[in-house]
Every structure is written in C-alpha cells, then in structure tokens.
C-alpha cells in the first residue's frame, strides 16, 4: 500500500511515553537507576549524556530488549507504529546485498532475491528519495560510506510510516548535507505529529531542534526544555559526573 511520507493528517499526534522508576542491572553492574521522565506526544525529545551513561540501554529498554524493572508505558490514541534507527548496521561488507535488496528485505515478505514487489516499489522509491539514496540503489551495502548506510537506516525506519520514531545517534557519519537532510526530515515528521526520541551528542543541534532534552548518566541528571536546562554549568556537570 502506498504510504505518503508527507501526509496531510498533521493533527493526530504520535504516542507519549512514560518512564517510571526504571532500573536496569546487567550482571552485577547497575546501568540505570530510578529513571523517571515523560516523552510528550508529537514532540522531538533528545537524550544526551556521557559515553557509558546508559542512553542506548534506556532506548533499548523502551524497545523491550532489556530486562528492566519499573514501568515504561506507551500511550497512544491508536496502534503504535515504531520506527527505529540503530546506531550501526553490523554485517559482512563482502555480502552482495544492494540498497534495493535491503529495502526489499525489510519491507516485504517475498524473498529479497526475487526483487522488490511492485506494490512496495512506490513507497521504497519515496523513502530512498527522501534520504537521498536514489542514485545509490544498485550499490552493494559494503560499498556505501558510513553516512550513506546511516541514510539507509533512516529510510527503512520510515517504512511503514511510524508514529513513534526512535533513533540512536542518527547523525553519526552524516556529512553537512546529510545533517541538513535529517533535520528537515525530523521537522517534517514532527509536523505530521510523529513522536521522536533520539540520542544525540551535538548540543547545538539539540538546542535548535528538540522540544525537550533529558540528560542521563545512570540516573536522570536533568530534563526539560533545551533553552532552560542546557546551561554551560549543567552540561559541564553532566559530562564530567561519574
């Protein structure tokens, strides 16, 4: 079914997410302690923090891939359609899988080696065009640059069209054009009511785009509007705290 990327239903908002006293322990190591904050529907919410602070673990807890305790609740007026952009795509670079093959693999039930099904072609074409990969669709994944692979991950996250988009450092490897493309895409998605939760390091961009920001380093250090909470002192404390 053709799913327009730009769709006029800009008023229906995506789900909201509540983290309520979430803890995560792996082995003897405490990864997250007493995490509580909310992601408002239809907003862009950024997660920042120092390396090893538990950001990816928190994101994966939301995906149900961690043995967390506490509650993570997703509230939505309708069914939740989740899109996820992982940090990296780990694969054997010598495998002869093209961009088209990859998109066929994620979108359709028919085996990817039979090619893209006609019914999925328009939406795949649009997604690839949106992330600027149309000219690279016959390229093998191993021959793409890191940034191009990131764009590909973004493209797959848009099919089916999500109302909750989760991204783990999507800017990694993207050049200036790529960064601009992503920013435009995020604003477009926000305009369509998609709730976006993403891990990011560039505080300047966070300030520019995000509606709310939460800083995590095992526990929540601060959470609120970027303009208010992202003062120099707080950032310094957050990234030097252990």
């Amino acid at each position: 079914m053709f799913v327009p990327l730009i769709d006029n239903k800009c008023c229906s908002k995506g789900p909201g997410v509540l983290f309520d006293r979430v803890n995560l322990t792996l082995g003897n190591t405490s990864i997250l302690e007493n995490i509580s904050f909310t992601i408002d529907p239809g907003t862009i919410h950024c997660l920042i923090g120092p390396n090893g602070g538990g950001k990816t673990s928190l994101l994966r807890s939301l995906l149900g891939q961690m043995p967390h305790t506490g509650e993570i609740a997703i509230s939505s007026p309708g069914p939740v359609v989740m899109g996820y952009v992982p940090q990296a795509l780990d694969f054997d670079h010598t495998l002869p899988i093209t961009v088209d093959d990859f998109m066929a693999m994620v979108c359709q039930g028919r085996p990817a080696f039979t090619g893209i099904k006609a019914v999925h072609r328009p939406s795949i074409d649009q997604a690839l065009s949106r992330v600027g990969l149309t000219k690279k669709r016959k390229r093998i994944l191993g021959q793409l640059s890191g940034g191009e692979r990131q764009r590909l991950l973004l493209a797959q996250a848009l099919l089916p069209f999500p109302n909750l988009l989760l991204m783990d450092e999507p800017m990694a490897g993207l050049d200036k054009d790529g960064g601009r493309m992503l920013n435009d895409l995020l604003m477009e998605l926000k305009h369509q009511g998609v709730t976006i939760f993403w891990i990011h390091h560039d505080l300047k961009e966070v300030k520019a785009i995000a509606d709310r920001v939460t800083c995590v380093n095992k526990g929540v250090l601060f959470s609120g509007q970027p303009g208010l909470v992202l003062s120099s002192q707080q950032i310094l404390d957050a990234f030097s705290a252990r």
Binding site: L63, G64, Q65, P67, T69, I72, A73, S75, S76, P77
Partner: peptide, 9 residues
C-alpha cells in the same frame, strides 16, 4: 487512549 506497558526482556 490505549496504553501499553513495555514488557522487559
């Protein structure tokens, strides 16, 4: 409003 609780792994 539907609410779903994310099940831990």
């Amino acid at each position: 409003m539907e609410q779903q609780i994310v099940k831990p792994l």
